Simulated assay, not measured.
Amino acid sequence: MVQHVIHGFGPVWDSSSTVLVLGSMPSPVSRKQGFYYMHPRNRFWPVMAAVFSDDPGASVREREAFALRHHMALWDVLASCDIDGANDSSIRNPHPNDIGVILRSAPIRVVVTTGTKAGQLYRSLIEPGLRRQGIATPMMTLASTSPANASKSLEDLIAIYHDAFTQAGVLTE
Results as ranks from 00 to 15, higher is better:
8 G>I: 13
11 P>T: 13
11 P>A: 15
11 P>C: 12
14 D>F: 09
18 T>R: 14
20 L>S: 12
20 L>V: 13
22 L>D: 06
23 G>H: 07
27 S>P: 12
28 P>A: 07
28 P>N: 12
29 V>M: 09
30 S>V: 09
34 G>C: 10
37 Y>S: 09
37 Y>I: 03
49 A>N: 11
53 S>N: 15
55 D>G: 11
62 E>K: 12
63 R>D: 01
64 E>Q: 14
66 F>C: 06
67 A>G: 02
68 L>G: 07
72 M>D: 01
72 M>H: 01
73 A>F: 00
74 L>D: 03
75 W>F: 10
80 S>M: 02
81 C>H: 04
81 C>K: 03
84 D>F: 09
84 D>S: 15
85 G>N: 13
86 A>T: 05
88 D>R: 04
90 S>T: 14
93 N>G: 11
93 N>I: 05
97 N>Y: 01
98 D>P: 06
101 V>K: 07
104 R>M: 04
111 V>N: 02
114 T>F: 01
116 T>Y: 04
118 A>E: 06
120 Q>L: 05
120 Q>K: 04
121 L>H: 01
123 R>S: 12
125 L>N: 07
127 E>K: 13
137 T>D: 01
141 T>G: 10
146 S>K: 06
155 E>R: 13
160 I>Q: 06
164 A>Q: 08
165 F>M: 14
166 T>Y: 12
172 T>I: 14
173 E>C: 12
